[in-house]
């Protein structure tokens, strides 16, 4: 058993040494943002280019509030958007449990964890709310902005019908980069 233990100790020391090299390796490269952070940055950009009706801002004062329902890789990264400025207003992030709570706010991100009730959530969302999700078929089933990954790069689709019904407008800066989808029966 002594031989066995010795090998184990050497191994552990060796691996710890390897682990210690990690920061050295990474220091030489700019860190890579996680997929969630990149998507959160997309959302920040969308917020910059959406036009809400003026009365949307009466209750929340000078804030643009992004509500989060459920969780996934994006929801945590979205916290980092809080405090940033868009359209001259400060962005705030709020976790909610019920889609109805989004009524007095501006945007809603729906996490992967809500996969199974996405359709009922979409139906329950009031007007003037921008909806975004990473869920498959989100835009096709009545959501507005849907991420997808193509050849390792993140892109997004916009359901223009849903955007118009909600009384929102997108700047052409966003629209020209998006793939536009039509809804399938809702």
């Amino acid at each position: 058993m002594a031989f066995h233990r010795k090998i184990m100790v050497i191994y552990v020391v060796f691996l710890t040494f390897l682990a210690s090299l990690v920061p050295a390796v990474f220091a030489q490269h700019p860190g890579i943002a996680s997929e969630g952070e990149i998507k959160a940055a997309f959302i920040y950009n969308f917020i910059k280019f959406v036009e809400w009706p003026a009365h949307s801002f009466s209750t929340a004062g000078q804030h643009i509030v992004i509500c989060i329902l459920g969780q996934d890789g994006v929801t945590r990264a979205l916290e980092k958007v809080s405090g940033k400025i868009a359209q001259g207003k400060t962005i705030r992030v709020k976790h909610i449990a019920d889609p109805a709570e989004v009524a007095q706010f501006h945007a809603l991100y729906i996490g992967q964890s809500e996969k199974d009730r996405a359709r009922s959530i979409i139906k329950a969302i009031p007007k003037h709310v921008l909806t975004i999700s990473d869920l498959q078929f989100f835009a096709a089933s009545g959501g507005m902005i849907n991420f997808y990954t193509e050849e390792k790069k993140i892109s997004f689709v916009i359901n223009l019908g849903a955007v118009e019904r909600a009384g929102l407008k997108f700047s052409s800066q966003v629209l020209r980069l998006a793939r536009i989808v039509k809804e399938t029966g809702s």
């Binding site: 943002a33 997929e35 990149i38 997309f42 990954t149 390792k152 790069k153 892109s155 966003v174 980069l177």
Partner: peptide, 10 residues
């Protein structure tokens, strides 16, 4: 947005 769309996801 353009720059974001050019990042490769690992």
């Amino acid at each position: 947005l353009e720059e974001l769309m050019d990042i490769e996801v690992y």
